[in-house]
Amino acid sequence: MPKIIYVDHEGTERPIEAKNGETVMETAIKNSIPGIDADCGGACACATCHVYVDEAFMPKVGEPEDMEQSMLDFAENVQSNSRLSCQITVSDELDGLKVTTPESQH
């Protein structure tokens, strides 16, 4: 099982084993990760699962599609490595993925 490392804005790391095919957001919700609320349940209709993706993994997770980019317009402190965790599907290729939640979501 791939491991996703969730980091809060203070630097606390929470490594979680994730199931292939689930999203980074679903894994966070199942494991009560602070800072990822997912108010819309993963429908890409809010920005409450906004994360910063570790730069080393950006080529693997790819760029946000148009709908996700539109939702990121509602997030605070968007950066070039910002993604909605509901739009990142877990796979073996993402083993070790580190995502950080913005301070504004805590």
Rank of each mutant, 00 (worst) to 15 (best):
C44H: 00
G21P: 02
M71Y: 11
A56K: 13
I4F: 12
C86E: 06
P34E: 14
Y52S: 05
S85N: 03
V53P: 07
H50R: 11
K19F: 06
S82V: 12
T27D: 02
Q87P: 02
I4T: 02
T23G: 04
S32P: 04
G41E: 03
K60A: 10
F57Y: 14
F57C: 00
P2Q: 05
K30Q: 11
M67P: 12
V53T: 10
E13V: 09
K19S: 15
S85I: 05
M25G: 04
E17H: 11
G96F: 10
E93N: 02
Y6K: 07
I88K: 11
I16F: 08
I16Y: 00
A18G: 08
Y52G: 09
D39W: 11
A28I: 00
I36G: 04
C49N: 10
Q87R: 14
I4S: 00
Q105P: 06
Q105R: 13
T48S: 15
C49S: 04
G11A: 06
M58K: 03
S70F: 12
Q79I: 08
D39P: 08
T101P: 03
I16L: 06
E10Q: 13
G96A: 04
I36E: 01
A43D: 10
M58S: 02
E26L: 09
S85F: 10
R14K: 14
A47S: 14
G21A: 01
E55C: 08
N20F: 04
P59S: 03
A56R: 13
E10A: 14
L84P: 12
C86V: 09
F74V: 02
G11V: 07
G21E: 12
Q79R: 15
E63M: 15
M1T: 13
N77K: 13
P15C: 05
M1P: 14
T27K: 00
P34F: 04
F74N: 06
P2A: 04
V7M: 06
R14N: 13
T89A: 10
V99I: 07
K30V: 03
Q69W: 11
N81C: 07
E22V: 10
Y6H: 04
M1E: 11
C40H: 09
G11C: 01
V61N: 01
I5G: 05
A45D: 11
E68F: 06
